[in-house]
Design a protein around this nucleic acid. Structure first.
Length: 501
RNA sequence: GGCGGCGUAGCUCAGUGGUUAGAGCGACGGACUCAUAACCCGUAGGUCGGUGGUUCGAAUCCACCCGCCGCUACCA
């Protein structure tokens, strides 16, 4: 079994914000989970560096485009590190290996007869990096940038997307889970069924990009370049191999069309398999508004991490929205999750468990199986993977949290402090403490993908081996290991919510 | 306009034909003391957007109406 997952590559000229962190963290949770199951995994993210705007900004700063992107790529390379994403490779579209592969890829679709030359003309807004139709303009100006678009007319190479309508429809019909959630697949299918127009894959007036092999004065336009990265990386990244293809892909809803329509068509044309699955997630809206630079409400993930730590941010990603849906979020809601769930439910459970083992049994976990909800453990062991296989990030954590809550209830019902008062109850107290420690050990392993820093801390607090393989999600594997002492709070109270922006 | 979807307790939502419609959060009351004033229990009496149908029976199926949202092409 192999599991290859990619995020979109982010546009290097932008700035990393919570939206990028959202995708990257979600992807990391899936990947870490599959690693726990012992699968051969590969996790790719990176940046798209070829765009006209990049070249223009570089020129303004008196730099070569390559020098410029080499500078600004730093912020993007830090993103996975910042959110503790266990990536295997960070791709840049300026990688030599990528360029070589793209040229080969383009040659393949050319040889396949899917490319032809035509004139491309229209009003182009440099700010948007997009052609605008008349009805999109306000007073002849781009509503987003307030400038008049330029008239551009050039001979471009076009990809015969229209020739792939039937094949794409057949693909969607044969594989109902090709695009998830289902309503996104419906959108894509509706778009395809409405008729497909060919699109331009080259730019004649630009030089910053990958030269078209049969017409080197032109460079590849974004889709013919960026979308190819998910395969190209496998041909040259360390430890990668083409055998990982086809993989799975995560994306936000704004780029659905390109990834769910253009990309599969390009792959078919070039003779590659289409992805196994594409999961389209929604947006996090801050206080009811979209997150955008122009609104000035961009949350810097770094600020949240500085105040709360990485794991709370990762936890929030899984909890803030039903994965796939949009959701309104706020810094207050983040704080709420942190205190109520991480602090009170989980952190406090670790505190009370370790404190009782230390107090009643001198820190030694009595190996006394018998109590504890074995059926619940078995449910976790099979149902959490099943949900994560369906990209149900939220449903899986919900299941795990029900288990965490049940452990708190177990403590209240079993009343270890009562049992401790009478030596005659020693055996029963042993069994209670064991069941508690075992449940917490299991919870830690199931949470590892979500909370990679916290899970090992819990195992360590219980004196258990660091092994987080999924086999450990089984009843009665807790050992009487290193002495247990009352643990320090895992998620201490934080004074005030971190400021947004 | 076309296609798709939504409207359920104060909030976020689950529930798609069948006993008294559920969860989490918030609020109120109680209990407990192992623990990060945490945890546990109870209460919340909501025309399940509206109207009319189908059915022994509908939040759950159908029709219409009201309100809201997504997609409807080359923007990372």
């Amino acid at each position: 079994m192999s599991y290859y997952l990619t995020t979109p590559i982010y546009y290097v000229n932008s700035t990393p914000h919570i939206g990028h962190a959202y995708t990257t963290i979600a992807a990391d949770i899936f990947v870490r989970h599959h690693r726990q199951r012992g699968e051969d995994t590969f996790f790719l993210t990176g940046v798209d560096e070829h765009a006209d705007k990049v070249a223009r900004v570089a020129t303004e700063q008196g730099l070569e485009p390559q020098e410029y992107v080499d500078q600004i790529v730093t912020a993007w390379k830090e993103l996975p590190e910042l959110v503790n994403a266990s990536i295997d490779y960070f791709i840049r579209t300026t990688d030599e290996g990528h360029k070589t592969f793209v040229q080969d890829f383009l040659q393949r679709i050319y040889d396949n007869g899917d490319v032809y030359q035509d004139v491309y003309a229209g009003l182009y807004c440099v700010g948007c990096e997009a052609f605008k139709s008349d009805d999109e303009l306000v007073d002849g100006k781009c509503p987003d940038h307030g400038v008049e678009p330029e008239w551009i007319e050039e001979k471009n190479w076009f990809f015969r997307l229209s020739a792939y309508q039937d094949k794409l429809l057949a693909l969607y019909a044969e594989r109902p889970d090709f695009v998830l959630p289902e309503f996104r697949a419906n959108e894509a299918r509706g778009f395809i069924a409405g008729g497909l127009r060919d699109f331009s894959i080259s730019r004649a007036t630009q030089t910053w990009g990958i030269p078209i092999p049969w017409d080197p004065v032109q460079v590849a336009y974004v889709w013919a370049d960026a979308l190819v990265n998910y395969v190209s990386a496998l041909t040259y990244a360390p430890k990668a191999e083409l055998g990982f293809w086809p993989g799975r892909h995560l994306l936000a809803k704004d780029i659905l069309r390109f990834h769910c329509v253009y990309w599969p068509a390009l792959l078919l044309s070039a003779g590659y398999e289409v992805p196994k699955q594409l999961f389209v997630h929604g947006y996090l809206n801050l206080e009811g508004r979209g997150i955008s630079k122009s609104l000035g409400n961009v949350i810097d993930p770094r600020k949240l991490i500085d105040v709360y730590g990485v794991d709370p941010l990762r936890y929030w990603v899984a909890r803030a929205a039903v994965f796939g849906q949009d959701a309104d979020v706020s810094v207050e809601s983040f704080q709420e999750r942190y205190e109520r769930e991480l602090g009170n439910d989980l952190g406090n459970l670790v505190s009370r468990t370790t404190a009782m083992i230390a107090k009643y049994r001198d820190g030694r976990i009595p190996v006394a199986p018998g109590l504890g909800d074995q059926a619940a453990v078995e449910r976790l062991a099979t149902e959490v993977p099943r949900r994560l296989d369906d990209f149900d990030l939220t449903g899986a954590i919900e299941l795990i949290w029900e288990f965490v809550r049940s452990l708190n209830k177990f403590v209240t019902d079993a009343k270890p402090w009562e049992l401790a008062k009478d030596e005659a109850n020693a055996d029963e107290l042993d069994r209670v403490l064991y069941a508690l420690a075992d449940g917490l050990r299991i919870a830690a392993i199931t949470l590892q993908a979500y909370l990679p820093e916290t899970a090992p801390k819990i195992l360590a607090a219980l004196g258990q081996p660091e092994d987080v393989s999924w086999d450990g999600v089984a009843y009665g594997k807790t050992v009487s290991g290193e002495p247990v002492v009352a643990a320090e709070p895992l998620f201490p109270r934080v004074e005030a919510p971190a400021a947004a922006a």
